[in-house]
Amino acid sequence: MFAVCVRRWNGGRRRSDADCYDNSTIFIPHCPRGTFMKGYNFAYLDEQTKRMIRRALLKAVAIPGHQVPFGSREMPLPYGWGTGGIQVTASVLGRDDTLKVIDQGADDTTNAVSIRQFFARTAGVRTTTHTGEATVIQTRHRIPEETLRENQIIVYQVPQPEPLYRLEPSRVETKRMHALADYGLMHVKLYEDVARLGQISISYDYPVMVNNRYLMSPSPIPAFDNPKMNRMPALQLFGAGREKRIYAIPPWTEVRSLDFDDHPFRPINAHQACGLCGATDSYKDEVITDDLGGRMFVCSDTDHCEQRRAATVQRHGPARPGHRAVSGPSDETGDDGSGAPRHGEAATP
């Protein structure tokens, strides 16, 4: 699996090496509607930077869960909006890739739309909202409900890569603790939770042990998503732009959430079915629908929810308009204007 990725990264670099000297609009056979923005290299970053990031990625994949420092660049979006994730995506993106970007599970929030458009313009790659059609998925705070496959890469945006950050303020000391696998302190935090609250109270960014060696922050995904990381067929890459760290989990790697034998790990979820599609096994957001206290629980993964609803409609009636499929970058803006069915709209009676 990994060999495949390397080949594709090299392929992407070789083809775009020639492109950097040519600022004219480039015709891309795989994506007839796609056009580059003039004056930018393929996927925005220059080739030397991408090469540097790929080196860090190779090291990260070779040592699962270990944080590798890299020379994070300034990106045209503020820290905290996914500067690490966007650099990793730029470095692994090839011309044949199809990109999906999600933010808290949704494809239609500002961050997701902006980053998707960014790569549609600077790389001319296909974009999609369907998890199954994507080859590269950049995500903030969620893992899609649909099981990922071997030929997919998921890129996480990470605000704080150090899982011991809140417990040990010194980076020198945390590095030493990682080097010596001295993780008693993390369990002290879990002990304190159980002693005070009767249960482990971490609901997101729940610390995991990768490959039985490195303690790792899974980025602020809900604890509900942690089990999906274990032996995931897809390659998982993590980028922290402000903290200048990259780490990775190769496919099929063991990822275990920390717990006690007598207080096992419990993923937390709302005890209600999705108000739109009726799913009970997906992670739910609570959405406020009016000023009168009206609220509902809906799937946080919008693509999952839409596909479930589309399947129901196909069985019982005509498909709804505005349902979005794979789209080229040129009609991206218009598509967002017309809007796929959003949670808020659908909730209004």
Binding site: G184, H187, D262
Partner: peptide
């Protein structure tokens, strides 16, 4: 960290993973 957590830290660092025992 509470008194119990302080006493338990070395146990957990050594690999104790049973809350009741700790």
């Amino acid at each position: 960290v509470s008194a119990g957590g302080n006493v338990g830290e070395r146990l957990m660092a050594r690999g104790a993973r049973h809350y009741g025992d700790i």
